[in-house]
């Protein structure tokens, strides 16, 4: 499972980098090929761009799963809650970028997730994106310069950890 998640995460981050115009420096940092970014406004905007692209991807995956009834009925409430969290994360970061006079990537017209299957398979798909989100925010948070964005990113990260922990428990994976 760990290898499947790692491969999924690499595909996801690579795809995001290509689709969302994530800066090469940020891509190198997330891929472990750079130790630090130059802290400042430009890096904050690059992080905002990557984060919003990731949030849009998560929102689209949850929406497809919910629209097609792919989440087990007993877990649908979690999926609705977590989709709402991702919407909040995206809107918060869009607001932060706008305050800086920066535009951010719009959602793609269509997200290609391949064949989505119901039940545990759907949970595994959202688990991959939640794992990628947690790792990306954890890696990037120390590179954020602006105090207001750092505070918002910290609360976003707390949410991502909750999502990941819930889905790991649903799948019977270790949580402590």
């Amino acid at each position: 499972m760990a290898e499947v998640m790692a491969a999924g995460r690499r595909r996801l981050l690579g795809g995001l980098a290509a689709a969302a115009g994530v800066s090469p420096a940020l891509t190198a940092f997330l891929g472990g090929r750079a130790e630090a970014l130059t802290r400042g406004g430009e890096t904050d905007v690059a992080i905002l761009q990557a984060a919003v692209a990731l949030e849009n991807q998560a929102i689209a995956l949850y929406e497809q799963g919910l629209r097609r009834g792919l989440f087990p009925p007993a877990l649908r409430a979690y999926a609705v809650e977590f989709r709402g969290d991702h919407l909040g994360h995206r809107d918060t970061q869009v607001a932060i970028a706008r305050e800086r006079g920066q535009g951010l990537p719009e959602p793609l017209p269509r997200y290609e997730f391949g064949r989505l299957r119901p039940g545990d398979e759907m949970i595994r798909r959202v688990l991959v994106i939640e794992d990628a989100a947690q790792r990306a925010y954890t890696a990037l948070i120390s590179q954020i310069a602006a105090r207001d964005y750092l505070l918002a990113a910290a609360f976003v990260l707390v949410d991502e950890v909750r999502h990941l922990t819930v889905w790991r428990r649903v799948l019977g994976l270790r949580i402590y």
Partner: peptide, 19 residues
């Protein structure tokens, strides 16, 4: 439950200018 309070904070962050 903490989820509601986190969402409240994030919505408040999204709704008004920051700084």
């Amino acid at each position: 439950h903490g989820g509601a309070s986190r969402r409240t904070l994030l919505r408040a962050l999204a709704a008004v200018p920051l700084g």
